[in-house]
Structure formats: C-alpha cells, structure tokens
Design a protein around this nucleic acid. Structure first.
Lengths: 149, 149
DNA sequence: TCAATCGTAACTAAGTAAGTTACATGAAAC
DNA sequence: GTTTCATGTAACTTACTTAGTTACGATTGA
C-alpha cells in the first residue's frame, strides 16, 4: 500500500466486502486486494470497526463484515474513521505573539473551516453503494464486450 | 519551520514584505520571521519568484520584494507556486486491471476534481491585501488597548 | 485440544521534508 | 579591481512519519 492511499485502499476493501455481504473476509484476504499484509489491514481499518462501519470476529470462520448496508455508509464517515485530514496544511502557531502570524492563521483557519464543511458535505453524499454500483457497471460492460468478441 | 506549514510560513513572509514595500528583505531576515534558516527560505519561495509573485536581487542591498501589488496576489497563486496539493489523498492505481479499484478511483477522482475546483475558487478570492488588512486591524487594536492601559 | 483468526505491541525499513554546509555567481561599494 | 554582501543551488544530514514485519496473547469454532 502506497503512502497517502489509505482512503482509496480502504474503499477498495469495502467494495469487496459489499460484494460478498454474507461472507466474512479475513485480514489475509483483504490484504491481498491492496497488496499489503494482514497487520496493516487490521491497523488501518480498526477505526472503521470502532465507528461501526465494519465488524470483526475472531477464531475459526472469523473475519470482517460490513456493519450496515452500503447505502448507509458514506465516504465522510469512512474518512473520519480513518483519521484522515481533508486539508493538508497546518495552521499551528510557531511564533506566539506575532500579530502577522495571528492574521495569517485567522484567515487560513476561516478558509479551512469553510473548505472542510464543503468537502464533508460532498463526501456525505457519496455512499459505498455508489461505489459498488459503479463497479457493477464496469463489470457488466466488460461482460458485454468480451461476449461480443 | 514545521512540516506542512509551508503555506502559512510563506504567507507570514509575504505579509512582512507587503508591510515594507520599498525595502528589499534578505533571506536572513525572512528566515528569522519563521524561525528557520536562509537556505530553507530561498528554496521555499523560489517557486514564487518563477511565478512573478516576488522578485529577488543579488549582491549588496539585494534581497526580496513583492513582484506586484498585494491586491493582485491571491492565495491560489501562492499555493500553486509552492507546489502544494490541495487534497492529501492519492488516487494512483496500485492494481491495474482491478475493476473494483477502477471504480473507486473513478469516484474519488470525480470528487477530487470538484473539490479542487471549489477550493481553488475560494483561494482565488483571498488576496495578500486581505491578510495585511487583517494584520493592521489587529495592530491597531493592540495600539488602542495598550493606550487605554 | 487444535487450528484459525483477530488485537496489538515492538521493532525495522523506506520515504519525505527540513536543516545545514559549502561554494559558485552576481552586484554594489570602495 | 577587490572586497563585501547577497542569492542560487547542490549535496549531505537529521528528524519524522508511515508502511511493513515479527511475535505473541486472546478468542472462537471444529
């Protein structure tokens, strides 16, 4: 798994889980999807379990399942559960007392708050079901084209 | 200078430059504002020079000046000139050929494009002049309050 | 009881960005 | 023209972050 690809890797995993709703998938299986190893998977999606997006069970036949229907899982929740930040820049003071810095941070924080609200809104409107629908569309297309050939 | 604070540090520097429009400031001076060293400053704002946001001159009396009026310098330009990314997640394929990944990336890229457009729009509407205005407001407030005490 | 599976701590490796040193280049002052 | 002050930039070092790995305990079903 590459750096900065935690969101897309996790979505990848979740779509696979959505496609096998009744079958618990092991960390091992999930890891192969995103070319990494089981411990990294567990660590990465541990937050999703805490958020109820997935459930895990131990022992024989154990593994991971979606915690609720794909329609009820938004990218916003997933992003938060992963602990991802939506904006990559910091606004922490480094020169307390400097009025120039205070002005910069104030303006930047206003921007950040407005921007994060906008992004979160957009992410709330996209669900895991949208992703699986897109996947199935692609899958059917391939089916048709390979049938034609 | 902390990690991920290139944007705010650069803005800090630019406001100082805007406050002394006719005086070339050296990398050394700029470095003290953001608690780092001159080479880091040069490296960081080299892109701003290429973009015409600042100019630099060498030799005795040399240093850095704004390339144009603060009203004509937007945060969007600055962000681009710094080479900053607006969104922190990657959507590069890691499993070429996997339809699930393709669906995830397609949806995520749609989101990214829309989000970047929105953010860029917001950043275009904020200029360096807005930052200096905010700074002066704070400066005057302090002046009044310390006068009152 | 055994095998499969997650949970998690501890360590290693790789990548990124800031910090530092060194020196070449250019411009002004004398 | 020589000296001084400044940027430009390459090369290296250091610090930090995060993925990868190993190890092992806890839990569950056969």
């Amino acid at each position: 798994m590459k750096r900065n690809s935690r969101l897309s890797s996790t979505l990848h995993i979740l779509v696979h889980m959505a496609e096998k709703p009744e079958q618990a998938l092991t960390s091992e299986q999930l890891a192969t999807f995103i070319h990494t190893n089981p411990v990294v998977v567990r660590r990465t999606i541990a937050g999703l379990r805490d958020a109820g997006i997935v459930t895990s069970s131990r022992g024989h036949g154990g593994g991971w399942l979606l915690g609720r229907a794909p329609e009820k899982i938004s990218l916003a929740e997933i992003s938060v559960a992963l602990g991802e930040t939506l904006l990559p820049f910091s606004t922490e003071p480094e020169s307390p007392g400097c009025l120039v810095e205070q002005a910069v941070i104030a303006v930047l924080d206003d921007f950040r708050i407005a921007a994060e609200r906008l992004l979160a809104e957009k992410l709330r409107s996209i669900t895991l079901a949208d992703l699986t629908a897109d996947f199935r569309r692609r899958f059917d297309l391939i089916g048709v084209s390979s049938h034609a050939v």
